[in-house]
Nucleic acid binder design. Structure first.
Lengths: 343, 343
DNA sequence: ATTAGCACTCAGACAGAGAGAGTGCTAACG
DNA sequence: CGTTAGCACTCTCTCTGTCTGAGTGCTAAT
């Protein structure tokens, strides 16, 4: 545990480094004026903090830089996640006119957060798997092609074109769609596969000749897993950060951002609240120079999405955590209202 | 006009520079063996070519580098757009199984082209404006919200959620959708706005009380212009190019790529065939270090999309132009087949 | 017309010097 | 005994000069 003076000096070093991105020396801290001891004393405290693992040197006679462990301590002990001005009302204002759609709200939120923080924002859409099917539609485009459309109670629309099985004629297709709609209405997307059991198949067989092939075919086309949608804002903000004045790091950042599925996996977070992952705390090698801060937002009592900020380990943790907290709350409010409105 | 020897040397210089990205000197060309004169002679030819504006020096005693004008000459006179092996059959093979959708084909094509060339591929979806509406659907999500879905004959699905006007009740909504479907079926997306004239409004008013507000409202929600979809592949390929070992250039590249609308504007090309834009030939400042090669593909006789390659001005023009030509032809074939299938 | 030879130019790599920022240690002080 | 001033030491960074190699343009000879 750190004593009061150590804490004060530690905080001062972190603040300065976050500001300047330069190793900070004892003189700088002493000159700040808010700590009334000499540079020499500060030096000995710094040596202690280094021994404890909270600070590092870049070379033997350089100033100090916070270590990952140092940031961890800072985040755990010195950051207050609750902002004074509780409500942002940013999103609320933007969607005030009433015409909006879910995707817009989310994308806009990502961009706002990027602008406010100058980091990269990544939002994971809510698990559409928990959304409930309210309509399945198949529209024929031609003799052999059609487009299938799934609509969920969250307003999510999913579609895919496909080639119709040759044995399926128009009236059979209609019957099939009717039966499917009747049986699958209100079922969560994740449970659609379960519902496609033998009972349903028998039912279909009664009305449609040669149902086997069509059934298998449609099953495959319609109900295979869809990747979760990722909303990214402010990718180029990363280029502003001085620590990425390094081609190697930028390269790894951009190749990381192209692997959307990797990122989605990384972010999927089930427990509520804010979670901070600093540098190597993340198992992914490419993330070693980054800090990822994730928070959750709720769409209703069951459905939840993740909103995250990605930046260098040297981050304005205090500001960022407060903002993320406030924004995810606001997103929840807005989406909850929207969703509630529906029932 | 260049004489035969000048042409040979010019070609040799360009080829070498495209290969190595280094200024090329007289000795290198002389040592290649395919030109049987001494380095001194080559030097004097080089001096001539420089005077004509086809070559440049990076400093007073450096080797030569092709100028923009040089590339232009090369592309106009020394590149043969027709490949020996005419057909690629790459896309055809990939979609051989028959289950596919339009977006998949396009995205896959973009990635294939990037892999083959190591440059960045950008594909503009076909102008959906020319596609014809085959179905308009509005599904209620709750008392006050609904999702509208437009389906075109190309299998394109567009949707947006919105808040219902309070004066519109369920049966009126249904009537309205029916009328709109009847009147708008087969109309091109670009001409939807024209069709929403007073005649239609009068018709609606006959069946729906207080049609005015609902009408204006839906009009705004449904028929405002949608941005064209951009399919991008191999963005990180740009990082491999040695000329982008420069943070400044990379920065401008990535900020450019974030302005999707700018890019779309840049690419929209109405005339058929291949078009090469080298460096400052493009009016956009950010494009000054890049060459953009665009080609068109056809979806049917009216609808057309653009497929483009973006790379450094030092590009393998010969290979790339042949590939792009072949690939856009193949895309046209594939999509044409798919589309024809429908009629 | 072509070429060999030569003087000249410039970028890039390398080494050494000096300044500046910072540290750790020690001895003195209140 | 904690704090501090002073000092030697370390390391980075920048500047400078030197050298080398690649390349050029010019000229005189073939």
């Amino acid at each position: 545990m750190l004593n009061e003076r150590q804490l004060l000096i530690f905080q001062s070093i972190i603040d300065d480094f976050i500001e300047t991105a330069q190793p900070v020396g004892s003189k700088v801290i002493a000159d700040k004026g808010n700590i009334d001891v000499s540079a020499a004393t500060i030096r000995s405290v710094m040596a202690d903090l280094e021994k404890m693992g909270y600070l590092e040197k870049t070379h033997s006679s350089s100033g100090r830089v916070p270590s990952e462990q140092g940031y961890r301590y800072y985040v755990d002990h010195l950051v207050n996640p609750y902002s004074k001005k509780k409500d942002l009302n940013i999103i609320k204002q933007i969607i005030a006119d009433g015409v909006f759609e879910f995707e817009q709200i989310v994308q806009t939120s990502a961009e706002i957060l990027s602008d406010l923080t100058n980091y990269t924002t990544i939002i994971l859409g809510p698990e559409i798997l928990e959304a409930k099917l309210i309509k399945l539609e198949i529209v024929k485009l031609s003799e052999h092609t059609a487009v299938a459309i799934l609509i969920t109670d969250t307003g999510h629309v999913e579609h895919r074109s496909f080639t119709l099985p040759p044995t399926l004629n128009a009236s059979d297709l209609e019957k099939m769609v009717n039966i499917l709609n009747e049986k699958l209405n209100g079922v969560a997307i994740s449970r659609l596969a379960d519902q496609l059991n033998t009972e349903l198949f028998t039912l279909l067989s009664m009305y449609i000749k040669d149902a086997g092939q069509s059934y298998e075919y449609l099953k495959e086309v319609l109900f295979n897993e869809e990747p979760v949608k990722l909303y990214v804002g402010g990718k180029s903000n990363m280029l502003i950060q001085p620590e990425f004045n390094d081609l190697q790091k930028m390269h790894s950042f951009y190749t990381l951002m192209e692997r959307e599925d990797e990122i989605a996996k990384l972010f999927k977070q089930t427990n509520k609240g804010i979670k901070v992952t600093i540098g190597n705390e993340n198992s992914l090698e490419a993330m070693k120079d980054f800090t990822l801060i994730t928070s959750t937002y709720a769409l209703d009592d069951e459905q939840m999405g993740t909103i995250a900020l990605l930046g260098p380990t040297r981050m304005r943790y205090n500001k960022v955590i407060q903002l993320l907290n406030a924004l995810s709350n606001e997103m929840s409010d807005v989406l909850y209202m929207w969703y509630k409105n529906k029932k």
